[in-house]
Amino acid sequence: MSNSPLPKLSPRQRASHKGDFGRVLIVGGSKGMAGAVALAGISSLRMGAGLVRLAIPEPIANLVASFEPSYMTVSLPTDDGVRGSIRAYHELVKEIEWADVVAIGPGLGQSKDLAQLVRWLFDRTEKPAIFDADALNMLSPLDLSARPAGPRILTPHPGELRRLAGKPLASRDEQIKAAQSIAAKLGVIVLVKGEGTAITDGQTTALNTTGNPGMATGGSGDALTGIIAALVGQKLSPLEAAILGAHLHGLAGDLAAAELGEISLIASDLPRFLPRAIQQYQRDTASPV
């Protein structure tokens, strides 16, 4: 396991503009799950993304837009009034052309139509893409015979990893070995959530040491997805973005728990405490004068 120093973000130049810090597209949301995609979008903004768009089903567009005025929303057609449809394909192609990085999964829901979209996005788009939650379930079990067209980060919890691998994974050691195998065969990054989150590209494996049990609450993974997407948009490699994203996500949770307690911690606290986590990380990694 690697204990390398944390990746560093480049200092921001005074003449910078929003296009310098990444255009993030997050595809997700469904009726009853509007908060998940909003959490991902807010977390991406708090992590420094220059521009964030949420591609969401039209019936929840106004609700999602109401959570945060700083991101943009794109309405996608539905067939059932609940979740996205294959008819969203042409709109998504345009949005992916705009984006520097794509994340798919928070609050997405599952259907045959969505499974086609997820599979197409995983196989065909050349843009870096993060797959989480329902997007992972619709990829399961993974086809390990063909590599995707672009960089991929998969962020499963142990149950999702078991479905991706298509076999039981009884211990943490088995989970990490399965993640390493998937990463090596497909050329992707796999981040396995849980105590001591493991991040691997099949050769290097890092274990995250931040985080606490208070983060075992709905929406925490959506925040992580947004954080990692923002870091990819800021030119970190997929492996670096996953390692640093897990660290900062856990550190934000630790800072929130120190003030609020583990029992009272909720997922929306994570983007709220993320600025403090970033500041602490910057202090800890600052070069000596």
Rank of each mutant, 00 (worst) to 15 (best):
K112F: 09
D113I: 11
Q116C: 15
L117M: 11
V118Y: 00
R124C: 15
T125K: 10
T125G: 13
T125M: 13
P128Y: 00
P128D: 02
P128L: 00
A129Q: 00
I130W: 01
D132G: 02
D132C: 07
A133Q: 08
A133G: 10
D134V: 03
A135G: 04
L136R: 02
L139R: 00
L142W: 09
L142N: 12
D143R: 13
L144E: 10
S145E: 13
R147K: 15
P148K: 04
P148N: 03
A149C: 15
G150E: 08
T155E: 06
P156G: 02
P156R: 03
H157Y: 06
P158G: 06
P158F: 07
E160I: 11
R162T: 13
L164Y: 09
L164D: 07
A165I: 12
G166L: 13
P168H: 09
L169I: 10
S171P: 09
S171A: 14
I176R: 15
K177L: 15
A178N: 04
A179T: 05
A179V: 07
K185V: 05
L186I: 12
V190S: 00
V192G: 05
V192T: 10
G194S: 06
D201E: 09
G202W: 00
Q203G: 08
Q203A: 15
T204H: 15
L207K: 13
L207V: 14
T210A: 08
N212K: 10
N212C: 14
P213V: 06
G214Y: 07
G214F: 08
A216G: 14
A216M: 06
G218E: 08
G219L: 03
S220N: 12
G221D: 09
L224Q: 09
L224R: 06
T225P: 04
I228P: 01
A229L: 02
L231F: 13
V232C: 09
G233M: 07
Q234C: 09
S237T: 12
P238T: 10
P238R: 01
L239K: 02
E240I: 05
A242P: 12
I243Q: 09
